[in-house]
Amino acid sequence: MSDFAPKYDTLLLRRERSRLYVTLNRPEVKNALNPTLIGELRSVFEVLRDRRDIKVMILRGAGGTFCAGADLKNMEQSFNEPPKPGEKDPIAVNNRQFGTFLELVNTAPQVVVAAVEGYAIAGGFGLLCVSDVAICTEDAGFAMSETAIGIVPAQIAPFVAARIGVPQTRHLALTAARFKGPEAYRLGIAHYLVKDSAALDAKLEEVLKQVDRCAPFANAATKAVVMKVGTEPLSSVLDFAADKFAEARRSPEAAEGLRAFAEKRPPRWAVE
């Protein structure tokens, strides 16, 4: 992992073949988001953007909690000075940077798998909603809690709406409703619902074995196509999809995949 930092203050990284396990590591505050954690996680995703030897990234939290949202102590102490005349409010600038970070996660070429137990609240809930696959325990707790403390879920709301639709997002955001794993599964926030941490680990391994079967470039290209749906005219999306299909078809991956199919064996990427 030469492109990653040798050590992080708020993250734990572990590489296993084409899998990268990333653990949010501030258990004393339920892995609350602060500038250091967001910055370190952003740097990891910036490295991943150009890596094809890693095809899945597993995101979870230390201490039995995924992420309890922003570190409110840090928020309360920041940006006390009003903006200068003619300058954009630094609070808005900082908030928009979190949206840029979520965009980076959302568009990562890797499969991003979130393994959720404990809590996924506010910004942590937004982080969950930009994963490709989410597994949660029955007793995990969720909420868009921002409005209950007088602030706005500004940067996470568009990603939540893309995940579960505008009507459900309005309900969650405008009531700050708290709910558990079964409701997260019903809403489509989580793709898998499991009983406890042991079952979470077992389901995670099952999902990772499924991802192992998929070619890295084909997955990245497919994700890029899907991400354009609803944001561009259909004809433009289909043009882009055709170009990605041609790029994949002419790649070594497709040659290997077709050869492996003919020879009735797993392709190389499935066993590496």
Rank of each mutant, 00 (worst) to 15 (best):
E28F: 04
G181V: 01
M57W: 04
V111T: 12
F261G: 09
P83F: 04
A115S: 13
Y119R: 13
E87Y: 06
T231V: 05
L41S: 06
S2T: 08
N80S: 10
L187V: 03
Q168N: 14
R259W: 06
P267G: 05
P109H: 02
E28Q: 13
D50F: 11
G124P: 02
F159C: 05
A221T: 07
D71W: 13
M57I: 09
C136H: 02
V47G: 05
D212W: 13
K195Q: 09
A68C: 09
G123T: 01
I164D: 12
K180R: 15
N34G: 15
D50L: 10
Q77G: 03
K84Q: 14
L187W: 12
V93W: 04
A176L: 05
T10F: 04
G99T: 04
N106D: 15
F79P: 01
L59C: 08
E16C: 08
E272L: 10
F4C: 09
G126K: 07
Q97S: 14
I164H: 13
K244T: 01
V226T: 01
S197A: 14
V93D: 15
A122T: 12
I121H: 15
L59K: 10
V237K: 00
P267E: 04
S2C: 07
A242R: 05
V93C: 08
C67S: 15
A120H: 07
C214H: 11
S145F: 13
E272W: 12
N31V: 01
P35T: 02
T222W: 05
S18A: 11
A68K: 11
I54M: 03
G230A: 02
A5M: 12
A176F: 01
N25T: 01
G181C: 00
R49S: 14
L11K: 12
D9E: 15
V130M: 08
Q155R: 12
A221H: 09
C67K: 03
A262D: 09
T107R: 15
L59G: 02
L234T: 07
A148I: 05
I58V: 15
S197L: 04
A215R: 08
G150E: 05
R51F: 06
F66K: 08
A221V: 00
K195H: 12
L20H: 08
K180T: 07
Q97F: 08
A215C: 14
A115E: 14
